[in-house]
Computed example of a mutant assay.
Amino acid sequence: MPPTWSFITVTYNSARTLRRFWERERPADVEWIVVDNGSTDESVTTAESLGARVIRIGGNIGFSAANNRGLEVAEGRYIGFANPDVAVDWATLSDLQKTIDETRGLVSPQLLNSDGSLQPNGRGAPLLAHKVLNRLSRQPRKNGYQVLAAAGERRDVFWLIGAVILGSADTLRSLGGWNERFFLYYEDKDICIRAWRNELSVTLDGRARWTHGWARETTTFKIMPWVREFRSMATFYSLYPELLFGGRAVSRKHPRAAMASGRLSASSG
């Protein structure tokens, strides 16, 4: 029997993180595919020891391209893209399946920080000003950019951070997977925008809560992560120039996302 779920994790020197977040036993109907982007540590052997099917790329082809390599071979009816620093709560998969079936779109559980506090993995319109303010300070702002889902609540959001994105295999393949123009960063905004444009929804489901360690490289100064982020930023805003400054152009270009962003789903509760 084919698996119900296929989880895809992209690794790059992630051995320690895998051991910390992926040691729990998986259900029998879940396959785990690890796509390794040329790690020089023990990521491959660690993933294999934890029961993953490993695809060795041999070099770093980027997050989007590696996710697509996993999607090509995934056999599950539902697909979960989950970073190495995410602890999946397998007991919540049935609820998330229902959300995917009901919304026909992209879904994420509400993420938690390692200390148990809520992590705002739902987001409003990715205007350049919002991105800059969010990068300058981790403090929440009352501008609708950071979106949380309370327990038992489902919220429509403009986009979901790419640490966890779930959907049916049919939906993700109909979208063409991840945009490989993005090596790293901004690919999550892009896939969610394309979902809205294809009359699909993007939903944050507070009935499921998973921990995300969030080891983000650009919180410290290392030249290559910042170079990659600026390259992806330039690509993103060239594709969606209306998001540079906001205004009415956003609601004209993204009517469904703008209208739904932050709204409670009708079937939440």
Rank of each mutant, 00 (worst) to 15 (best):
S174I: 04
S174Y: 02
S174M: 09
L175R: 06
L175Y: 10
L175I: 07
G176D: 09
G177M: 09
G177Y: 00
G177E: 04
E180C: 06
E180M: 07
R181I: 04
F182V: 09
F183M: 06
L184M: 13
Y186S: 05
D188P: 07
D188W: 06
D190S: 04
I191A: 08
I191C: 08
C192P: 00
C192F: 02
I193D: 00
A195P: 03
N198F: 02
E199Y: 11
E199L: 15
E199R: 15
E199Q: 15
L200A: 10
L200F: 05
S201Y: 01
T203P: 14
T203G: 06
L204M: 03
L204F: 02
G206L: 00
G206P: 00
A208M: 07
A208Q: 04
W210Y: 08
W210A: 04
W210Q: 05
T211Y: 09
T211E: 14
T211H: 05
T211G: 05
H212Q: 13
G213S: 05
A215M: 15
A215R: 14
R216A: 13
E217G: 06
T219R: 15
T219D: 12
T220H: 11
F221G: 08
F221P: 12
F221N: 10
F221T: 13
F221A: 10
K222C: 03
K222Y: 06
K222T: 11
I223N: 10
M224H: 15
M224I: 14
M224D: 15
P225G: 07
W226N: 07
E229P: 00
E229H: 12
F230V: 14
F230P: 07
S232Q: 14
M233Q: 12
M233F: 06
F236K: 04
F236W: 02
F236D: 03
Y237W: 01
Y237D: 00
Y240E: 10
Y240P: 04
P241T: 09
P241Y: 11
P241A: 05
P241S: 05
E242P: 02
E242N: 07
L243H: 00
